[in-house]
Design a protein around this nucleic acid. Structure first.
Lengths: 333, 333
DNA sequence: GGCGATATCTTTCAGGGTTACCATTTGATT
DNA sequence: AATCAAATGGTAACCCTGAAAGATATCGCC
């Protein structure tokens, strides 16, 4: 293992001079030494020890990416794309991303402190103890998709409420008056709640309020679905607050002999890559995941560069993508 | 920031004693001191500095997970699931996963060395300079899906060749005599090549050799597809070496007015979660990604625990999952 | 009961590779 | 000769661990 000292010895200068060259403080070292040292570094294959560096400077160039839940969180393509994008951009900024799964915020705090982690991005539902996380870790934090009343939190999210409204209005426009809401991707997070609220609110406004029995949990029983779709006043359309749910729902409806969109319609949320390939292709509310990641990372680095920067709460827009999983009841008649 | 020293001072013992307690070497510390120290640690919220620890011990408890390609690699669900699972299990072993994207193996070497990374998992097509990577980094490495002639490499893969054979035999069994191979998920990696080889070989054996024009690149032109399916001897089935390809292919065929499976059949590979939800649901070659991840991580930790452990090359089995994207030509007639 | 021997704790010392801070040298400019 | 800037060096952290020596308690034995 080659160290600064070795390089210094070989170059006949002090460690300090080598350190300056390694760290690009060229203005403080003579031209000739820079060249000599660089060539020795190259020749010997010297790589700075980041452990030593971070011990000494209290800056590790590590960013933690923290995912709520367990391994299955990455099976959800939305998270995968987001994490992938975020980690890539972290690396692009010459930092190293550490990927953590967490449920317990104490554990997070431990991990963030133990390396001198310089910043963290949180994905998922840390709504409740978010303030605590912030307080316990005196480093820049960026949350994604968090709903919290706490001020002074930097968060990047989308207009989930509007997404719900869009879905409701679209379904009504297509003549669906009795509709249902199916599930959240794991628990009822703030995100799902907002989508539901927007959905519910728009329905009310349009005069078709959502009844309680039309709000279904993640994986509704076949029985329940059947009853809803076959009653005297059958549900003709479903809003799933995630494409993955929509997909599963379509599968289930299929199993009950209900064709989508002929027999009942489904609208999703996210517009994940597979949405255009499913059959029927999914009508869904689109959000720009890449942009979300980009903004989150940009904000994080801004805060790392300038710890005094004010917290920001960014809300990105969503839009409806019309495909073929919703039928027009007007045409049908 | 609380340090060992602070704890030691408060407890009235030396740093070393505290260090022992922190590191669980309880047999060397008196009962009373253990309790006292632990309570002080708890009270003060002491968290060991991993930078210092790794500097001192040359062991960072970091595992690098290295993904070939760029951010888009994580959009591919196969990679996402694998990475998710691997990182989770790394964390489970009380190590920290660092996620890197890489194309250039020199960059990897740099990064692995700069932290005292204790091991690495490589996903993707590092077939060519794999030996170099191994030589440059004197730490345990586990490759996933690598095909390399180099011995002494620990690799976990699946029987891609057999997968190709299974696909071929199944299509022939269903009466498809003129078939095509469509694409690899990005470049022609060893994995895709093996799948093709197995496919080709089985076809030959059965007396229906694969002609060159029936091996199509990733995203075949609409023109090309059209010609293949409408010629005098039309292609009736496609083998896509990845479900994602299969999905795209189905979309394209759809655009050309060719229904799957009525007009032509498609068989995929991987059995990703969406395969059962697409329409038609995908007949595909299944591999167990979770198991792959599990084995890779287990092997890695075995090698970290015992650096002398011999390299292993594990090949997992695959099987065909019959769904509805392949039609039976016998029935049709 | 006092001796050394053994076992059980505990401390001291010496790094590990880097950076921050301050001090020094050098050579050129007035 | 005095001044100054540029280039370089020395030293003390940073926090932890490993090895080995030091201190204390435990025990059998003459």
């Amino acid at each position: 293992m080659v160290t600064l000292k070795d390089i210094a010895a070989e170059a006949g200068v002090s460690v300090m001079t080598v350190s300056r060259v390694v760290n690009g403080q060229f203005s403080k070292v003579s031209e000739s030494n820079i060249k000599k040292i660089q060539s020795i570094i190259e020749k010997r294959g010297y790589v700075p020890s980041l452990s030593a560096r971070s011990l000494s400077s209290h800056a590790s160039r590590i960013i933690a990416v923290i995912l709520q839940g367990d391994a299955s969180a990455m099976e959800y393509p939305y998270n995968a794309v987001l994490v992938g994008q975020i980690c890539y951009m972290i690396q692009d900024n010459n930092y190293s991303p550490m990927l953590y799964y967490a449920n317990d915020y104490k554990d997070i705090t431990r991990r963030l402190r133990s390396w001198y982690v310089e910043g963290a991005v949180f994905l998922g539902m840390f709504d409740s103890n978010l303030r605590q996380i912030q307080a316990d870790n005196q480093i820049p934090l960026v949350f994604i998709d968090s709903y919290s009343s706490v001020r002074q939190i930097t968060n990047v999210g989308i207009d989930d409420y509007k997404g719900g409204e869009l879905a409701a209005r679209y379904l009504i426009e297509k003549g669906h008056h009795r509709v249902a809401f199916v599930g959240g991707y794991s628990q009822v997070s703030g995100v799902v709640r907002q989508r539901l609220n927007g959905f519910r609110h728009a329905l009310e406004q349009e005069g078709f309020p959502l009844t309680e029995e039309c709000i279904l949990s993640d994986v509704p029983e076949a029985e329940v679905l059947k009853k809803l779709c076959h009653g005297s006043e059958p549900v003709t359309a479903f809003f799933a607050p995630a494409d993955v749910n929509a997909l599963q729902l379509i599968g289930q409806l299929d199993g009950l002999g209900l064709r989508v969109p002929e027999d009942c319609s489904v609208i999703g949320f996210d517009d994940l890559f597979f949405a255009q390939y499913t059959s029927p292709s999914l009508t869904t509310i689109r959000q720009d995941i890449h942009r979300k990641a980009q903004i989150a990372v940009d904000l994080l680095f801004r805060h790392i560069g300038d710890p005094g920067a004010p917290a920001e709460n960014i809300t990105l827009d969503v839009q409806l993508v019309e495909r073929s999983s919703v039928c027009d009841l007007h045409e049908k008649r």
